[in-house]
Amino acid sequence: MKIQNPPFLYGQQGLQQSQRNLEQASQEVAHIATQTFDRVQPKELDVQHGTIEEGLMEARQATQNAQSNAKVIDGSNKTIGSLIDITV
């Protein structure tokens, strides 16, 4: 019998997306910090990049999303474990 576990897959995909978002936010913070460190005036900063605060908020959001997706994976594993215990 094949057991399909969509919540586990959704949690895994969400975790991967959270990791990509965290990497992107970290790169953005590093880019802005580098420009600021090089003493570029704020009005000369690259328009496509926000502020360090925005980047840090995005990083925090990605971290919280990752934690939520990890809970989905954990709950899914527990559910499958209990199903296997019942059917054995």
Rank of each mutant, 00 (worst) to 15 (best):
Y10A: 13
G11I: 00
Q12T: 04
Q13P: 01
Q13G: 06
G14L: 08
G14D: 06
L15H: 02
S18F: 03
S18E: 03
Q19C: 01
L22G: 11
Q24P: 02
Q27I: 06
Q27T: 03
E28F: 03
V29Y: 01
A30R: 14
I32D: 11
A33E: 15
A33C: 12
F37W: 13
R39W: 06
R39Q: 08
Q41A: 14
Q41V: 04
P42Y: 07
P42I: 04
E44H: 10
E44C: 06
L45V: 02
L45M: 14
D46V: 00
V47Q: 12
G50P: 02
T51K: 02
E53Q: 08
G55R: 00
L56Q: 13
L56I: 03
L56K: 09
E58D: 15
E58H: 13
A59P: 01
A62N: 07
T63G: 15
Q67C: 03
S68A: 15
A70E: 09
V72L: 06
V72W: 06
I73H: 01
D74K: 15
G75Q: 07
S76C: 07
S76Y: 03
S76D: 06
S76Q: 00
N77V: 07
I80P: 00
I80F: 03
G81C: 04
S82I: 01
S82V: 02
I84S: 00
I84V: 05
I84T: 03
